[in-house]
Amino acid sequence: MKTMLHLINKSPFEKNSLDSCLRLAQSGSSILLIEDGVYAAVANTEHAHRVAARTRDLSIYVLGPDVAARGLSDSPLIDDITVVDYEGFVDLVAEHDANQSWL
């Protein structure tokens, strides 16, 4: 089976990109939260439980520089979300067969 990396750059408070991705993403695929998408990685938000629930069947990553830029470095993130840098972003793109941006 192909492996898919989903990229989400929208805040879950503003757009439905995360919802649509979670609805259509297949078990075993990965999600990388970038830009305003990183707000979905923060624990204790009203969206956190939905994201946390999917860490069981999806691998979820968040882009560290975008987390830091938004003042979230000291905020607790959802358990099992992995922080990566831009080199990690490149590795994720290379390791997955394809990627899809949920703009």
């Binding site: 259509l24 297949q26 067969d97 899809q100 703009l103």
Partner: peptide, 18 residues
């Protein structure tokens, strides 16, 4: 349905969204 569509999506090489 989302389930079937998601399965087709997962088989793509290039996905371009708007």
């Amino acid at each position: 349905a989302a389930k079937e569509l998601g399965e087709i999506m997962a088989k793509q090489d290039i996905v371009l969204g708007s």
